[in-house]
Write a protein that binds this DNA or RNA. Structure first.
Lengths: 244, 244
DNA sequence: GTTCGGGATTGCAGAATACGCAACGCGCGT
DNA sequence: ACGCGCGTTGCGTATTCTGCAATCCCGAAC
């Protein structure tokens, strides 16, 4: 729609992976150096990018400032934050908060396990829809039309032997999810990690997000994770109740 | 240089202050709605903005992801972080880390006082150059040419009765700063808050950042703050030494 | 159920703007 | 000292963006 802007955003995304030189960027975008230079200059003027002594470009500091605001603006996050902390402390496990955004499921918040077993999910990055608890919860909550569209367009990448790899089985799974009110992920995304997830609703009952607990099975097996279900659901209830 | 991109960045900055509608944004930028719409769409496609059910626009989740990376990419921050934490714990006072970026001084990191006296400085936002310790440190370290240019262009806003409000006195102050190796801010930016700041150098001796301690005088008067100077300088030394 | 109104959205033609080329500068390494 | 790589600049062209006006969509009011 706006070519130059799209290219600029591509540059930012690329810089997100590490510092780049002018030529590198020009190569990646497939455009002339001059073009990249002008875009970079415009962004540099507003501190969206900066460049060091050796003419390498990096992300600029205005992004920090914006990001803090962006996070705060996620209403879901504000309401949920204290409850998530409580859940994290009570269970000691990794807690994720995700929201539906523009056809994707995005991790909005993450609280690491007190055990130092870190997962490599990252706030701000999309989650897989067919093999994560939050993905299933949010997908199950979409209107039929959109859900079917998404089901048809997924790539069903098999992250583990347990990953659901076709639309029909996923459709069944989503029905189950919707009926019982929570979703499971039995090592479907990362081997040896089981998750359970529950939906968050706003005042009008619309699903606006999802919480999940993730537990490596060196700590708890799947049945033991299910014992945490009441805590998870209570948290989801409490957050939902805060939307009045 | 790139008009549409510049406008898009302006939109992002504006959204940083809160959600906006299409017309609001068009009004602020002084352009036609259509133009804004196209820019927003482009950014929405890449998740730089998102829009809620009622067509209000907000910052999108890609910004979180980028911001985390942007912070990490600040080499100064990586090296300094552990030392800052130590200084913060030892003194119990507010610690700031700032860097010179594109003619401005930007707060790159901030550790709050253990007393819950919060300052309203914000990471990612520029610091005033003529009345903050970090500003003076970094300005004093600039090459003469640039320093003079900046001295001539500042607005010398008087935040408090102590603020230095003209170029000549600031020039003297910078000389003092440079000679003794640290800067003071005696309630020049916020009444009742005194600061001391020190430069951070990289391997080649170039000043790449500044650390400061900020103390409200309900806790310590200026002379008492000076007693923290050795800790501050030791921290600066340690960080500088880590650049080997 | 129908009408009204505000806002979002689209098609289009003109014009400003961004593009790529080619030439120039600059610093670094050989 | 020289050449090479990379960043930078001026400029003509045409692509892209812009603003207008008409249309659509949705919710509210009657």
């Amino acid at each position: 729609m706006s070519q130059s802007l799209a290219r600029a955003l591509q540059i930012l995304t690329s810089l997100g992976e590490g510092e780049r030189s002018l030529d590198q960027l020009a190569g990646e975008l497939g455009v002339h150096k001059t073009t990249v230079l002008r875009l970079l200059r415009t962004m540099e003027a507003d501190r969206f990018v900066r460049r060091d002594a050796s003419h390498k470009y990096r992300l600029g500091s205005r992004l920090f400032a914006l990001a803090d605001v962006a996070r705060e603006q996620h209403v879901v996050r504000q309401v949920a934050a204290p409850h998530l902390r409580e859940l994290n402390q009570k269970t000691g496990q990794t807690v994720h908060l995700a929201a539906w955004e523009n056809g994707e499921v995005i991790y909005v918040d993450k609280l690491d396990s007190v055990r130092s077993v870190r997962m490599y999910s990252q706030v701000g990055v999309p989650a897989a829809l067919h093999c994560t608890a939050v993905g299933k919860v949010l997908l199950a909550a979409q209107p039929k039309r959109q859900r079917d569209a998404v089901l048809a367009s997924l790539d069903y990448k098999a992250y583990t032997p347990n990953t659901i790899t076709d639309a029909d089985r996923l459709r069944d799974e989503l029905l189950t999810t919707q009926e019982r009110g929570w979703a499971q992920d039995k090592a479907e995304h990362e081997s040896f990690i089981n998750c359970i997830g529950a939906p968050l609703k706003d005042g009008s009952g619309r699903v606006v997000g999802a919480v999940s607990l993730s537990v490596p099975d060196v700590l708890l097996n799947y049945e033991q994770v299910l014992e945490l279900l009441p805590d998870l659901l209570a948290t989801a209830e409490a957050i939902t109740a805060d939307y009045n």
